[in-house]
Simulated assay, not measured.
Amino acid sequence: MKTLRELSSKHSRQGDRFDLVVSEDVLVNGHVVIPKGSRGIGEISRLEPKGAFGKSGKLETRLLYVAVGNTRIRLDGQAADRGKSGTGATVATAIFAGVAAAFVTGTSATIPSGSSMIGYTDRDLPIVLRPISSPAQNTQSDAVPVVPPQ
C-alpha cells in the first residue's frame, strides 16, 4: 500500500486517520483478490512532537483496513519515523550560550506521500474464486469477491 499524503509529527495528531491505496494486485492462485487501486485506511497510533533540548519527533502508524467492494478487510501492519535529534547542537549551544540550549529542537518525524506500507490480513479469510475466463468473455472486473467471515 502507499500513503496518499504526507504524515508529520508537526501537523498530524494521534488518532488521525489517513488514506492509502493498494499499489499492486494481491493474487491468490492467479486470481486477483484485492485489486490495485483499492482504498485503505490507516491511523496514527503514536505521535510525539519535536521538543526542546534537541528532542526529535516520533510518528507511528498502523493499517486498519482495505475496502474491496462493500467488504472491509481488516489489516495488520505498521510504519514509523523518528526525526533527527538535535542533541549535538544542544550540547554545543549549552556550553556557549547556557539557557539558549532550550530553544534548540530536533526535527519533526515525517512519512512522505507515496511511502510504501506493507499490510497483512489480520486473519485468514474465506474467498470465492471464479473460473478465469478469456478477455473476450470477461465483461466484469477481475476482482474476486471476498466472502466476509460468518
Rank of each mutant, 00 (worst) to 15 (best):
48 E>G: 09
86 G>K: 09
136 A>C: 09
25 D>Y: 02
95 I>A: 12
95 I>V: 15
54 G>K: 08
48 E>L: 15
18 F>L: 10
18 F>R: 10
13 R>C: 10
53 F>Y: 15
23 S>N: 10
83 G>F: 10
4 L>K: 14
4 L>F: 09
2 K>L: 01
17 R>Y: 12
119 G>C: 08
106 G>D: 03
43 E>L: 10
149 P>G: 14
24 E>Q: 15
31 H>I: 03
24 E>P: 09
124 D>A: 06
130 R>P: 08
105 T>P: 02
20 L>M: 14
140 Q>P: 05
138 N>K: 01
26 V>S: 01
83 G>I: 12
45 S>K: 12
105 T>A: 06
77 G>E: 04
43 E>C: 06
22 V>R: 03
93 T>W: 04
50 K>L: 09
109 A>L: 11
82 R>E: 11
54 G>A: 04
31 H>D: 01
122 D>Q: 10
77 G>R: 03
28 V>M: 07
21 V>Q: 11
34 I>M: 03
26 V>P: 00
110 T>S: 05
35 P>V: 15
6 E>L: 11
62 R>M: 02
85 S>E: 13
111 I>F: 00
65 Y>T: 07
97 A>P: 05
50 K>H: 08
20 L>C: 13
96 F>T: 13
35 P>I: 12
149 P>C: 08
57 G>M: 07
81 D>E: 14
49 P>E: 06
148 P>V: 03
79 A>S: 15
67 A>W: 05
58 K>E: 10
24 E>W: 09
115 S>Y: 11
19 D>N: 12
137 Q>M: 08
54 G>R: 06
28 V>T: 01
86 G>Y: 14
47 L>Y: 07
106 G>Y: 04
27 L>S: 00
92 A>D: 14
45 S>A: 11
123 R>A: 03
28 V>P: 01
75 L>E: 00
77 G>T: 00
42 G>A: 05
116 S>M: 12
65 Y>I: 05
112 P>I: 01
131 P>C: 07
3 T>Y: 05
26 V>T: 03
66 V>D: 09
130 R>V: 07
37 G>M: 12
108 S>K: 06
120 Y>L: 13
26 V>H: 01
22 V>M: 06
142 D>W: 01
122 D>G: 02
41 I>H: 01
51 G>A: 11
11 H>D: 14
57 G>D: 04
109 A>E: 02
16 D>T: 09
129 L>S: 01
117 M>I: 15
26 V>I: 04
43 E>Y: 02
42 G>Q: 00
12 S>D: 15
2 K>M: 10
144 V>P: 02
51 G>W: 13
37 G>F: 14
53 F>N: 13
4 L>M: 14
144 V>W: 00
57 G>P: 04
3 T>R: 10
70 N>T: 11
100 A>Y: 11
40 G>I: 04
85 S>Q: 13
45 S>C: 06
106 G>R: 07
142 D>L: 03
121 T>Q: 02
150 Q>Y: 02
81 D>K: 15
99 V>H: 08
117 M>S: 06
46 R>C: 05
50 K>D: 12
127 I>V: 15
143 A>E: 00
